[in-house]
């Protein structure tokens, strides 16, 4: 340490002129991105809406007098909203409280959206960054596997899984995540290959960093922006996919429900009680819109071309 000390004095005159930088707040690329996101009104409102929706879905049921699977034997058919008996949005054709069911369905949809996307991110980022960074035969093998999996039709795959393992709530997460990671891994691979030849990767190598360290410290932080954007675009996709599966009767099982299942039920009685279709559809589309706007906003905020 003595080594540097001796010389630091003489360079003081050099550094004095550079000290003028001091009055500027230090800002990382992340914090500037968050600032930019807040300035983007549509994205910011969307983020708030998502938080609000998630909050009422998970906390709301505790404040309702009816639970989602309770049948009000006095109102065994679909009834209009009534504040006095606690059915704020009325009941469905079996006399269950619609609001309670929507909130419970929201829980399922959010859980599927988040968990399945997480499965996709973990597998996708691992496979993508390994393939992109290591290259060579590892890349070839991994990407051919991805190609093969791409060819298998999604519905076919899920139906087979359901038949073999029975209808399981968690199986659906895995099934959906297992399909969504393919695109994620391709995106990550492309980004990694672009980064691999950047000079700072070379300089990390010269500094003695191992491959693991380079992937964890240099590659992943730099592709995280793209991954986050892709996540916000995947979540609505997954929610929609789950709704579709539930619509077909392959998703969650009664008395549990999800937004997709509710819409499916409502569609059957569309002519008699349009309310049972429109209200859950409104919740679903608000959530999807918000996620898409947030994704767009994040993409603009994280775009490195601005810096």
């Amino acid at each position: 340490m003595e080594f540097f000390k001796i010389f630091s004095q003489s360079s003081e005159r050099n550094s004095k002129s550079l000290n003028s930088f001091k009055d500027v707040e230090e800002r990382s690329l992340w914090s500037t991105a968050i600032q930019r996101l807040i300035l983007n009104r549509a994205a910011f409102v969307s983020a708030l809406l998502i938080i609000f929706l998630a909050f009422i879905c998970f906390v709301g049921p505790y404040f309702l007098s009816w639970s989602y699977d309770e049948i009000d034997w006095d109102l065994i058919e679909a009834t209009p909203p009534n504040i006095n008996n606690g059915h704020y949005l009325g009941t469905d054709s079996l006399g269950r409280d619609l609001l309670a069911r929507i909130l419970q369905g929201g829980q399922v949809s959010f859980q599927v959206g988040l968990l399945a996307t997480m499965v996709a991110v973990i597998i996708g980022v691992t496979v993508g960054s390994l393939a992109g960074f290591l290259g060579g035969w590892i890349d070839q093998v991994l990407m051919r596997i991805v190609d093969i999996l791409y060819v298998i039709p999604l519905m076919f795959f899920i139906i087979i899984l359901m038949v073999i393992f029975g209808r399981n709530f968690y199986l659906m997460f895995i099934a959906i995540g297992f399909v969504e990671w393919l695109t994620m891994s391709r995106i990550v691979r492309g980004q990694t290959m672009a980064l691999r030849h950047r000079e700072f990767i070379d300089s990390a190598r010269v500094s003695g960093s191992s491959n693991t360290r380079i992937i964890l410290k240099h590659i992943i932080p730099n592709i995280l922006g793209v991954v986050i954007v892709y996540v916000t675009l995947t979540i609505p996709q997954v929610i929609l996919l789950e709704s579709f599966l539930s619509f077909l009767g392959l998703g969650v099982q009664p008395p549990m429900t999800s937004w997709g299942a509710l819409i499916s039920e409502g569609a059957r009685e569309m002519e008699i009680t349009p309310r049972t279709l429109i209200v859950p559809a409104l919740f679903l589309s608000t959530a999807l819109f918000s996620f898409n706007f947030l994704g767009d906003g994040l993409r603009d905020a994280l775009d490195p071309r601005d810096r």
Partner: peptide, 16 residues
């Protein structure tokens, strides 16, 4: 300090 940078800038990012 040796290369003529103020050590107060230690937590900055390269783009600054």
């Amino acid at each position: 300090e040796t290369v003529g940078l103020s050590s107060s800038m230690i937590n900055r990012y390269p783009h600054e």
